[in-house]
């Protein structure tokens, strides 16, 4: 079986988010990057499948050279090889196109990724990849078992769970508790150095969106305490200041 896990390279969740160039560019200065947490779950499940059933496991990232440490961490965790599509990930469709192009070339049985990245949180790439490849795409998958060519999955839905069966090949957007995050072991880290990391150029530019600007959410305000006997004041504040009534 051939598994592809798509990895995003995202700011650590504790990073301070700032923008430059008139709020059009994310300020990378001093930001530490990690494997997207949902992608990390997908990777952990892929490593388990590889250990249980035997599989070749490739990780892929669409990003510039600076994302290689993130890919190498994925290799340390247990992937066999890595592919970096050498381009800034311009938007979801662009990324999906790149993944689909690689997948068409290499023919994977199972394509896993996080339900969404944690930088732009589009949550669209798995669906687009499925569409581009003509494969079923299921998300958010919290359980995934393979039996022969059948895949048994559990999806989170509003107020409950949905059990889905599908046949390989397929695309899945994963989330916890599909597997437990894996910390790379020292031997894995040392062997990551010698595993192949191939850089390929992107296919034709397929950008369909253009970010005009970003705005940060307003800073958290102070708490206003209203005396319990003064309901009128509370209503006034909710109406005029919070503007929720």
């Amino acid at each position: 079986m051939k598994i592809l896990v798509c990895i995003t390279h995202v700011p650590d969740t504790t990073s301070k988010i700032q923008f430059t160039e008139n709020n059009t560019k994310f300020d990378k200065n001093g930001v530490q990057y990690i494997i997207g947490p949902y992608d990390d779950y997908a990777l952990a499940r892929a490593v388990e499948i590889k250990e249980q059933l035997g599989a070749s496991l490739t990780v892929l990232n669409v990003g510039e050279a600076e994302t290689e440490p993130t890919l190498r961490k994925a290799l340390a965790i247990g992937a066999d090889d890595a592919i970096r599509v050498n381009s800034f990930p311009k938007d979801s469709f662009f990324v999906a196109k790149q993944i689909a192009a690689i997948a068409k070339q290499n023919g994977y049985d199972l394509i896993l990724m996080g339900r969404e990245s944690i930088d732009f949180n589009g949550g669209m790439v798995h669906g687009m990849v499925g569409e581009l490849l003509g494969m079923p795409s299921i998300s958010p998958v919290m359980k995934l078992e393979i039996e022969g060519d059948k895949v048994k999955m559990a999806r989170e839905i509003e107020g409950g769970k949905e059990y889905v069966d599908a046949k390989l090949p397929l695309v899945a957007g994963c989330q916890e508790p599909i597997a437990e995050w894996k910390i790379p072991n020292m031997r894995g880290i040392m062997s990551a150095r010698t595993k192949p990391l191939v850089v390929v150029e992107p296919t034709a530019d397929a950008v369909v969106t253009d970010v005009t600007s970003f705005i940060l959410p307003p800073a958290k305000g102070t708490v206003k305490l209203v005396d319990k006997d003064n309901v009128g004041e509370l209503v006034r504040l909710l109406k005029n200041e919070a503007k929720v009534l």
């Binding site: 072991n185 880290i189 150095r193």
Partner: peptide, 9 residues
Amino acid sequence: EEQKMMAQA
């Protein structure tokens, strides 16, 4: 990078 990855692990 490798040593930093070990430290992070």
